[in-house]
Computed example of a mutant assay.
Amino acid sequence: MPLVRIDLPASVPAPAAAAVSRAVHQALVDIFQVPPDDLFHVVARRAPGELVCTPRFLGIEHGDRVAFVQIACSPGRTVGLKEALYDRIARDVARAADLRGEDVIVNLLETARENWSFGAGLAQYALQDRARPAVAS
């Protein structure tokens, strides 16, 4: 159920932008165990000046070609899984878009399942959760 927003420099060619999307999705499938058909991405290539990043932050030197990957997903993954995801995305996006791994910035937003609608005005996960029998404690 992740919703992924990917913002890339305009200099990244369309085929490379598509490869970035595939790389992020594959990382989510492999590391977060997202179903392969759970694919919801917004990919944008931004003109110069539309991607703003500080030159240095927390010991990381950033260049003038940065990529932002923002992933909204349900909560519950361990810090270790998140770290593995960040590492994989940085490496694979850098490779796909001819960027440096230091210039791939990832942000994970965790949101409750009832905050999602996948169309038809329905809260599909809320419906599923209500249909599950209660577990006695």
Rank of each mutant, 00 (worst) to 15 (best):
A84M: 05
T54W: 10
I89N: 01
G63A: 04
Y86N: 05
C53S: 02
V79D: 08
D98N: 15
V69D: 01
H62R: 13
A47T: 04
V66C: 13
A44V: 12
R56M: 13
E50T: 07
T78N: 06
T78G: 11
V66K: 00
G63M: 07
H41K: 00
G63N: 03
V52T: 11
G59W: 10
D37R: 04
D38A: 11
G63S: 08
L39Y: 10
R88L: 08
R45L: 13
E61T: 13
F32H: 02
D87K: 08
E83F: 02
P55S: 08
D92M: 07
A90P: 03
F57P: 01
T78W: 13
L81F: 10
P36A: 12
Q70D: 08
A90L: 11
V79Q: 12
D37A: 07
I71A: 01
L81H: 05
C73E: 02
I71V: 14
A96Q: 01
L85S: 07
R65L: 12
D37K: 11
H62M: 10
R65A: 12
V93H: 03
V93R: 04
A96L: 01
L39P: 00
L85H: 04
T54L: 11
D38I: 08
H41V: 11
D98K: 15
H41S: 07
D37Q: 06
A67Q: 06
I31K: 03
R46L: 15
P55G: 02
V93I: 03
L58C: 05
T54F: 10
V66D: 06
P48S: 08
A96T: 00
D64V: 15
V52C: 01
F57L: 14
L81K: 14
D38V: 10
K82G: 06
F68T: 05
D38N: 11
E83S: 13
D38H: 12
L85F: 02
G59V: 07
D37P: 06
V66Y: 07
R65P: 08
R95P: 01
Q70E: 14
K82I: 12
L51Y: 02
A72E: 03
L81Q: 14
H62D: 07
A97Q: 02
I31C: 09
D38Q: 12
H62N: 06
I60E: 06
R88M: 08
T78V: 10
I89Y: 09
T78F: 10
A84Y: 10
C73D: 11
S74I: 15
D98W: 08
G76H: 03
Y86K: 03
